[in-house]
Design a protein around this nucleic acid. Structure first.
Lengths: 332, 332
DNA sequence: GCCATTGCGGACAGTTTCGGTCCTCAATGC
DNA sequence: GCATTGAGGACCGAAACTGTCCGCAATGGC
C-alpha cells in the first residue's frame, strides 16, 4: 500500500544524504540517521559509501561532533530545490548573454543541460523572470537567447539545423547544416557547422540567422577542421572589425579615479596630477556611453570618433531635456 | 590493485548514468550499456531504477531507438564538469548581486551551497573571474559579495556572527547575533537576526555592517518573529524610502518607442501621437541615468527631482566633453 | 509486408550486498 | 574522569543485484 517501500533504498538514501549535506553544512550522526530512518551504523556505512565515491565527508568525534561534506576533487551532484534551480537557470542566462566575459559558452552549455531536465512549472517561472533580465548593455544586434539555446542543444545532440541566412551583402539563402560548436568571440556568437549543401565547413554569425531555426534529423559528428573549432572560427572571422577600443581622458587624479573605475572597465594610467587616461574595450557604443554616464567626473573622449559623436548627441539630448524641464515643469 | 572494483557499483552507476544523460540527450541502449560496462539487461534495470526515483526516462523502440532523460516533477541531481560548475557559480554571483530582480536570495542560498563543495581549484577560477563581474549598475552603496556569502552560510549553518554596526545616526557598536535570514528588499540587503545582547530580534542593513564579520559558535534556530522573516523585515524597514519611481516623457510615438523600450524598464503609456510616458522603478539614480543614456530619442524627466538634477549634471558634463573635443583634438 | 533493429520485461540462479545488532575503541569537551 | 559521539569489526538473515535466456512489441527501411 502506501507503506510500500520501493526498495531503492540504498541509492535513494545516498542521494538524500547528499541533499541533506547540501542543505546544511553540519549534521550530527543522530540527526542524519533519524532523517534517513536507518540505524546509526548504517549511516556510517552510507558516509563511507559517499567517501568511496570521491565525496569527502569530514567528521569530528566527541560531544558536538558530527559530519560535514567538504570540497573534494570533484563536484558532487547538486541537488537543488525549485527556487535554487530557477536561480541557477536565470544566473546562467545572464552569464550566457555576455554580462560576464569569457564564460558565455560554458554557461550556454550548462543552460541547455539544465533546460532538458527542468520541470515544466520551473521552466515557466524562468521564462517569466527572464523577461526582466537586464540585457543592460544590449550589445549591438542582440542575439535571441532562445535561438542560442536551440542551437546549443542541437550541437550537443547532433541534430541538423535548417535556417535562413542573410549574408554580408544582404542576400538571403536557405541553409542546412550540421552544427558543431557555438563560439563567442568578442561580442558576437558564431556557429561552426558543416554546410550540407556546400559540403564544407562554414561559420555563421548567429545574429544573421533568420528566425525560425528548425531542427531536423540527426547526424554523426565530424572531426573539427584542423583540430579546433575555436581556432577555426577565429581564423574565419579574423577580418572582423576590432572591438571598439576607446581612449578616454579623465579629469581626475589616478588616486581619485582608481577606486571609482571598476577593474573590468579597462586599464587606467596616470597622465599628470590631475588627469589620467583610460584605455578600454567595449562591445558597442551603447556600452561605452553607459560607462560615460556613470563616470563621476569630467572626461574627454579621444577615440573613437563615433564615440565623440555619440557624446555630442547625448550632450544635446540631455541639454534639451533639462532645458525643457526648466521651462515646462518649472520646478527647481 | 588498480583493478579493484569498489563494489559501489549500483549507486555509482546510477550517478554515471545520470551524468551521461546530462552530457548528451539521446543514447542508444547499446552505447549506454557499453559505457557502464554492464549487460543491456542491467541497463534496462538501471533505467527503471531512475524512473522509480522520479526521473522520467523516455525511450523509443525500433531502429534508431534509444533513451532520453526528460523533464520530470523534480529536478534530477546535476552533475557538472569543471567548466559548468564555474559557469554556474559566476552566474549565481551576478544574479545575487542584484542584476536580476527577485531571485537574489535564492541565488545567494544556492551560491553558498555550491561554495561548500566547490573544489579548491575551481574556487580559484571563480574568484579570478568574479573580478570581471560587471556590477554595471552599482546600485548605491554596493554590498560586498563576499560578506553576503559569509552571512548566508552562517544563516544556513547556524553560526553566530560578531560584527561592528553603524547605526542610522552614525554611531558604531559591536554586535553578536544569531543570524536567521537574509532578505533583499528593494535594493538593499537586510539581515534578520536575534541580537544576543539585547535579547530581541533585530534587522541589520548589510551595507551598514562593518568588515570584518567574524563567525563564532553555533546556536539553535529560533522560531521567526510572528511566523515570517520576510514579513518581519518588511515591517521593520517599512519606513525606508520608496524605490525611486521615475516618470519620463518620451518624445516618440508609442509605436516607435514600444519596441525600443525593454520590458523590464517599466510601463509605457501613450500620451498623444508624438509622445508617450514611461513609469519606471529603479534601484538608484545611476541605473536610471544609464537608462536615459540608452534611450534613442528625446525625453523629458518629470520625476524625481534628483533625476532632473542628474540630467542637468550629465548635460553639462557631456557638453564640456564635446566642446573640449572640438577644441583640442579638432578631429572632425 | 517482411525483417532487422531496438527496447521490454518475466523467470531463474548464484553471488553480493545490505542493514540491524552487538561489541570494543578512540577522540573530544565539560 | 565521564558522557557523548564517531569508527569500525564480526555476524547473520534477508534482500537486492547481475547475467543469462527467453518471447514480445514497436519502429523504420527495403
Amino acid at each position: 500500500m502506501a507503506h510500500e517501500k520501493e526498495r531503492l533504498e540504498t541509492s535513494a538514501r545516498l542521494l538524500r544524504l547528499l541533499s541533506l549535506f547540501q542543505a546544511r553544512r553540519y549534521w550530527s550522526g543522530a540527526e542524519l540517521s533519524e532523517r534517513l530512518e536507518v540505524t546509526p551504523r548504517t549511516l556510517r556505512r552510507d558516509v563511507d559509501r559517499l567517501r568511496s565515491l570521491g565525496y569527502p565527508v569530514n567528521s569530528t568525534t566527541g560531544t558536538a561532533g558530527g559530519y560535514q561534506l567538504g570540497a573534494g576533487a570533484t563536484l558532487p551532484p547538486l541537488l537543488l530545490d525549485d527556487e535554487e534551480a530557477v536561480a541557477v537557470a536565470v544566473g546562467l542566462r545572464t552569464a550566457a548573454s555576455g554580462t560576464v566575459a569569457g564564460i558565455e559558452e560554458a554557461s550556454l552549455r550548462t543552460l541547455s543541460k539544465l533546460q532538458q531536465v527542468l520541470p515544466a512549472r520551473l521552466r515557466r517561472r524562468v521564462s517569466a523572470l527572464q523577461s526582466f533580465i537586464v540585457p543592460l548593455v544590449h550589445s549591438g544586434p542582440m542575439v535571441d537567447a532562445e535561438m542560442l539555446s536551440v542551437i546549443a542543444s542541437a550541437c550537443r545532440d547532433c541534430f541538423k539545423l535548417r535556417f535562413g541566412y542573410r549574408s554580408k551583402d544582404g542576400t538571403d539563402s536557405a541553409r542546412e547544416v550540421e552544427p558543431h560548436r557555438l563560439v563567442h568571440t568578442g561580442w558576437r556568437w558564431y556557429l561552426a557547422a558543416w554546410d550540407v549543401d556546400r559540403e564544407d565547413w562554414r561559420t555563421f554569425r548567429v545574429d544573421r540567422m533568420l528566425p525560425k531555426v528548425s531542427v531536423s534529423s540527426r547526424f554523426t559528428a565530424r572531426t573539427p577542421p584542423d583540430g579546433d573549432f575555436a581556432a577555426y572560427v577565429k581564423r574565419s572571422v579574423s577580418f572582423a572589425p576590432d572591438p571598439r577600443r576607446a581612449v578616454i581622458l579623465l579629469h581626475a587624479s589616478i588616486d581619485v579615479a582608481g577606486p571609482e573605475v571598476p577593474a573590468w572597465a579597462g586599464t587606467l594610467k596616470p597622465v599628470d596630477d590631475r588627469t589620467c587616461v583610460l584605455h578600454t574595450e567595449a562591445h558597442s557604443l551603447d556600452s561605452l556611453s553607459v560607462y560615460l554616464a556613470l563616470i563621476g567626473f569630467d572626461f574627454e573622449v579621444r577615440e573613437p570618433p563615433e564615440l565623440i559623436e555619440r557624446v555630442r548627441l547625448l550632450a544635446q539630448r540631455f541639454g534639451r531635456a533639462s532645458r525643457r524641464n526648466i521651462g515646462s515643469s518649472g520646478k527647481k
